[in-house]
């Protein structure tokens, strides 16, 4: 199947405005933590580096994903600084392992779930302030300075991909700003992607030898992920909603 090119989204006037604004305002879109330490809010440098010609995405082969493996989750937690504090109902989970048993056939599979980086993301539609936004390269982020903590995006997300920060946070990573009272989710490790790297979860999955996760540019027909998508059948979760997620699963 053919994924529509996302670079058409650049025609969206509001997005152009936002990008231009952040380019201009990048210098002020930082917040001082302590002397010498500043947090980049998503939207500033992160937005300016987005390449409108690309659409970053993931392909997850559920046949290769092992039920007892949690490497992607651990890697994301280490990379981005969210953790298990012993309060499972309120702890943030940017990525989680989901175990599935088919109701009719009994087939058991396991897969990682995270923000699906939808092209038509409901979280962006419902966000009153525009804090939920999509970069030109398809990565869906939360501008931590504009989020008022209304949680409407959490109500709207079909994938339960977002978490609300329920308590004050200490020792956060400078590349992954977080804040009490705001909403957060998988950033597709935008700080790594902008430096030519790949998300921590994908890297960790590769190191286990399972190789269930593939990252790449969906718009580049020569990329490994685009070739694989063309060759094998895959689905986006809740395809009935026609959100065109950037994360796709095969063998599900």
């Amino acid at each position: 199947m053919k994924l529509p090119a996302l670079n058409t989204a650049i025609k969206d006037l509001s997005e152009v405005d936002r990008r231009e604004f952040f380019k201009a305002g990048g210098a002020v879109a930082t917040v001082a933590l302590t002397s010498g330490v500043t947090l980049m809010a998503f939207g500033g440098e992160a937005s300016a580096k987005a390449d409108a010609g690309k659409r970053w995405g993931l392909l997850i082969d559920v046949n290769k994903c092992k039920s007892d493996c949690n490497a992607c989750v651990t890697a994301c937690s280490d990379e981005n600084g969210w953790e298990d504090t012993g309060n499972p109902e309120t702890d943030a989970q940017w990525i989680r392992k989901v175990d599935l048993t088919h109701k009719q056939t009994g087939r058991e599979v396991s897969l990682p779930m995270m923000c699906q980086h939808c092209e038509d993301a409901p979280c962006i539609d419902v966000c009153p302030t525009g804090a939920s936004f999509k970069r030109a390269d398809g990565i869906v982020l939360v501008d931590k300075h504009a989020c008022i903590g209304c949680r409407y995006c959490m109500m709207a997300c079909p994938f339960k991909a977002r978490s609300f920060v329920h308590e004050p946070i200490e020792n956060q990573k400078t590349h992954a700003p977080r804040g009490n009272g705001t909403v957060e989710s998988c950033t597709l490790c935008v700080h790594r992607v902008d430096k030519g790297g790949q998300p921590a979860c994908v890297e960790a999955c590769g190191k286990t030898g399972n190789g269930a996760m593939m990252f790449g540019d969906l718009n580049d027909p020569a990329s490994e992920i685009a070739v694989a998508l063309k060759q094998y059948s895959s689905i986006g979760l809740r395809d009935d909603l026609r959100l065109n997620p950037g994360v796709r699963y095969n063998n599900l």
Binding site: P88, Q93, R96, K97, V98, D99, L100, T101, H102, K103, Q104, M113, P158, F159, K160, L237, R238
Partner: peptide, 11 residues
Amino acid sequence: IFPAYEVTSSF
């Protein structure tokens, strides 16, 4: 999210 499956997770 997965209408055909029984689902469990830490979330």
